[in-house]
Design a protein around this nucleic acid. Structure first.
Lengths: 217, 217
DNA sequence: GACGAATTTAACCCTCTGGTACATTTTACC
DNA sequence: GGTAAAATGTACCAGAGGGTTAAATTCGTC
C-alpha cells in the first residue's frame, strides 16, 4: 500500500490552474463537437479526452450549448487571426488574388475541425452564431481585402468592371470549403483520386485559374 | 359522450395500408433527419409528423440507424432520377455544359433536404453510404455525361485539352452545393444580399461563366 | 366463419446523459 | 494560521429517448 506513494506528504492533492483547465476543456470540446456534432457530442467524452470531470465543464461553461458556442467563437477567432496574418500588399492584383485563393484553399484543408464546426452550425441554421458579437466587424475585413484587390485590378485594367468582392469571396469559399466538407461522400461516390497530395495541388491550381479566368478581362 | 360518435358501428377501428405507412414514415423521417441530423432526430417526433406510432417505425425499419440509411438511399435514388431526366443531346458542347451547370445549381437549390442529408452524412464520414449498393453504377453516369460533353468540346476545338470530367463535376458540385449548404452562416457573416431571387439568378450566371471560362480555350 | 399471419395499439422498460448537491481541497489575503 | 472564496472530487438524480412486450385488430384464404 505504501510503496506506491511518491510524494513525501501523506495527503495526496491536486494543483489548481483554472485558465489551463478552461483552455483544455475548450480544445477537447472543439474536437468532440467537430467529430460528433452538437447533439452527438457527449459531455462525458469531452471530460475523458483530458484529465478532468464533467463537473468542471459545467462549472466553467454552465451547459452544453454554451460550451458549444464558446467553441464556435474561439474557432472563428483563431481562423480570423490566421487570415489577418496574410499580407498581400505590394503584389499585383492578379497575383494577390491567386495568393489569396491558394491561402484559403490550404487553410481550409488544414483546419478540418473548423470546417466541420461550420457545417454543424449550418445544420442548426446558424442559430448559435447570433450570440457571437465579435463576428460582425472582423468578417467584413475579409471582404475589404478582396475589395482592395478588385479596385487595384480594375484600375490596372486587368479585371472586368462587373466583378464584385462578395461574389469572389463566395466562389473562393465555395470551392475551398466543399473540398473539405464533402470529401467523404465525394470519395465514396467518385473515388479518392482527387484527394491525393498531388491531385490536390493540381486542383488548387485549377481553382486559382478558374477564379482568375472569371475575373480577368 | 355518445354525440361525438360518427360511424354507426360501435367498434372504432383503423384501416390497414402498409405501403402507404412505410412511405409516410420515410417522408417524415427524411424531413426530421434533414432538420436535426442523425443523433438530433427524435423517433417520437417522426411518428408525430404523421398519424402513426414509434412502434410502427421500429416495426418497419428495425432501428433508427437503418431508418436513416433507408432515407439516405431513397434521397439519392430520387435525385438521380431527376438528373437522368436531363437531356443534353444535340446541344453544342459549351451550351450543354452551361445547361448542366444551370440545372445542377437550380436542382440543389430546390432540394435542400437532400443537401442537408449529404452534409449530415459527411459529418458522419460517409459511414452509412457504404451500405448503399445502388450508388456505385449510377453516380458514374454523372461523370460520363460530362465526359461526353468534354470529348465533343475538345473535338470541336472549343475546350482545352487538359480539362477532366471529374474536376468539372467537382467544380459544379462545389458551388451549387455550397450555395445551399452554407447559406445560413454565409448570410450571418456577410448579409443575405446574395440570396435574393435576382441575386441568385446573377450568381448562377457567374457560376456558368466561371466554369466555362476555365474550360474554354 | 375460422384460422393464422400481418398490422396496429397501448403500456412499458432501461440505459444513457445532461445536469446537480454536497463535501473537500486549494489559494488568496489578512 | 485563520478565513472566505475559488476550484475540484464524488456521488447522485431525473428525464429523455431508443427500443420492447404483449395484446388487440385487420385481412387474406381455405
Amino acid at each position: 500500500m505504501s510503496e506506491t506513494e511518491k510524494s513525501s506528504k501523506k495527503t495526496r492533492t491536486w494543483k489548481q490552474d483554472p485558465e489551463a483547465v478552461k483552455a483544455d476543456i475548450l480544445k477537447a470540446a472543439r474536437a468532440e463537437f467537430a467529430e460528433h456534432g452538437l447533439s452527438g457530442a457527449r459531455v462525458q467524452d469531452i471530460a475523458d479526452r483530458i484529465k478532468t470531470s464533467k463537473r468542471m465543464i459545467f462549472y466553467y461553461f454552465q451547459d452544453k450549448e454554451r460550451l458549444y458556442e464558446a467553441v464556435l467563437e474561439e474557432a472563428y477567432r483563431s481562423v480570423r487571426k490566421a487570415e489577418a496574418a496574410l499580407n498581400l500588399d505590394g503584389l499585383p492584383p492578379d497575383q494577390a488574388l491567386a495568393r489569396l485563393v491558394e491561402f484559403t484553399f490550404d487553410h481550409h484543408r488544414s483546419n478540418t475541425d473548423f470546417i466541420r464546426l461550420v457545417m454543424i452550425e449550418n445544420i442548426h441554421a446558424g442559430r448559435h452564431m447570433n450570440n457571437i458579437a465579435s463576428l460582425i466587424d472582423t468578417n467584413t475585413s475579409a471582404i475589404q481585402q478582396i475589395e482592395r484587390i478588385c479596385v487595384a485590378g480594375k484600375k490596372a485594367g486587368l479585371f472586368r468592371d462587373d466583378v464584385t468582392p462578395l461574389v469572389i469571396h463566395w466562389q473562393i469559399s465555395a470551392m475551398s470549403f466543399f473540398n473539405v466538407s464533402n470529401r467523404d461522400t465525394f470519395s465514396i461516390n467518385f473515388g479518392t483520386d482527387l484527394f491525393s497530395e498531388t491531385a490536390q495541388t493540381d486542383l488548387r491550381k485549377k481553382v486559382v485559374e478558374s477564379i482568375l479566368a472569371s475575373v480577368m478581362r
